[in-house]
Write a protein that binds this DNA or RNA. Structure first.
Lengths: 302, 302
DNA sequence: GTTCCGCATGAATCGATAG
DNA sequence: ACTATCGATTCATGCGGAA
């Protein structure tokens, strides 16, 4: 079912019952350069966590906070080009503390990206439930990160039903027996501003989520500093794409986005500048493919 | 024990065992004007939730999103003056959606306040568990607000031990169900059974909180419908002030900050531009004072 | 004195309609 | 075209009266 594309070491092809073909392309190089080879209006979702700004220019792609915006803008310009008009760009980022203050490069980046043509549609909060322990005299542990949603157009694809969550416990008692008032409320209160049809909820188990996501951080990944849990890209891939769509991560890192995308039957493109990381993801892709041969993997169902 | 200051209708004086004297000053007028009469380096904590930008120009001080920064800067300039060097300014705010996009006036305000001399020390997240309902094709419910922390200096007073939370699920669930009365009793009656339990937790496995606060909005209260729950100013007053310190709320609204401050034995100043709100807070202060005469209120202990 | 249950009410947002 | 108004949609909480 799985076949490596001929003549291309960096592309994986997943065939499912001969009907579907999921492609995963990995590129080694600088996002700013590699993106030039990607066609315009190609991606349905861009989900990425770029290297964080760092004063010490040692670590992963270290970019100084003062240079961060200038460094990112040429890349976001290309991202704007390769994203479909109906697509969404989700940027996972959080400003560091520099000299006792929160850096402003993230909020400056938002303003500059708007000038570039992006719409800043929403800011989700990733609440990291098990964040880093630690104690400082003048601040507490930082347990949240930004998930900035940008779009090209006011209209974009959003599959809200895919991420619905179970209704709160209150509903069990509340909806047990509906009073007459609940059924009538819709008509009785005209002009009061807040009519509601409780009866509509009777047969419902799930509700729509909010813009605060509660997810634990992943602890096992030692090789990569900026690792997020699989549930994070998974949630946004569910929300903003359908099967066979294209997902892009221009700062692939440990490849979480692409691996999750393939598992969810989305085509994906990954770009990574550091050879070690790039090779590690390639190996991971190979082993994932092996797993797919096992019937237990469940990919042959349907 | 309580006495209204002579010749001043807007000042409340709380005497405790003749040792302590807690003053609450309320002012009617525009913050930008009233602040001019407040001495420099006067406040230990400024906690406020200004009117959010509104497109409708009819309601409460409606400021258009485009004019918001220009409107706020003269006020924040005065706030910078009246704050003690060791003090903290906590600004509760959230940008609205305008034309399908998040407005940028809040992040522009951060940048401008930095130019004004403020340090942007931290951004806390207030996760509103019971946020406003609603469904839209392109966004989910907004369940968080910003709590921006600004300071004059890199060194400021922070009493971290005062806001430690017990770890462990049992304790967490227990705390969640505490009524406001229980909390008051905890503050006043150290010897009671409940206080003992709290003391035990403190000695055992208390842990420092993070920069994400989980609090529900108060909605069912007929007498005082506040923009934020009492637990919100309470948390920051605990964290950034000691007894006898001075708390300022330049946009008093329903007076939650000042009422909580007085209960926690902090002096406070409140400013409100709308006469109806101002009068309502004055009445509330009077009735709070009456409660303080009751021994059950627990304010005479210690 | 507890527990249960009804219910008003929130710093909302979109799209259509009207001026 | 551009702005103001209105109806429709939706969840979770704490209060207060009842059992």
């Amino acid at each position: 079912m799985y076949d490596k594309k001929q003549g291309n070491e960096n592309s994986w092809l997943l065939l499912i019952s001969g009907k579907m073909e999921i492609k995963t392309d990995l590129h080694l190089g600088d996002a700013k350069d590699i993106l030039l080879d990607i066609p315009s209006d190609y991606c349905d979702l861009i989900f990425t966590s770029p290297p964080y700004a760092d004063q010490r220019n040692k670590t992963y792609g270290g970019v100084h906070p003062d240079d961060y915006v200038d460094w990112f803008l040429p890349i976001s310009e290309q991202l704007l080009r390769v994203l479909k008009p109906s697509g969404t760009f989700v940027l996972n980022i959080k400003e560091k503390v520099v000299n006792g203050e929160r850096s402003t490069y993230v909020i400056e980046l938002i303003l500059e990206m708007k000038r570039q043509g992006w719409l800043w549609t929403e800011e989700f909060i990733w609440h990291k439930k098990n964040c880093y322990p630690g104690k400082w005299p003048n601040r507490f542990r930082d347990s949240w990160e930004r998930l900035l949603q940008f779009n090209k157009q006011k209209k974009f694809h959003m599959y809200q039903e895919e991420v619905m969550v179970p209704m709160g416990d209150w509903a069990k008692n509340r909806l047990k027996n509906l009073s007459e008032v609940d059924k009538k409320r819709d008509e009785s209160r005209v002009g009061s501003g807040f009519g509601k049809k409780i009866a509509n909820w009777k047969n419902r188990d799930n509700v729509y989520p909010t813009n605060v996501l509660h997810m634990a951080t992943e602890c096992g990944n030692k090789n990569h500093s900026a690792a997020f849990p699989e549930s994070l890209p998974e949630w946004f891939i569910k929300l903003f794409t359908q099967e066979n769509d294209v997902v892009l991560d221009p700062f692939m890192g440990s490849g979480t986005t692409n691996i999750v995308a393939q598992r969810m039957r989305r085509n994906s493109v990954g770009i990574e500048i550091i050879p070690e990381y790039y090779e590690a993801v390639k190996e991971k892709m190979d082993s994932v493919q092996l797993c797919l041969f096992e019937p237990e993997a469940g990919y042959e169902k349907t």
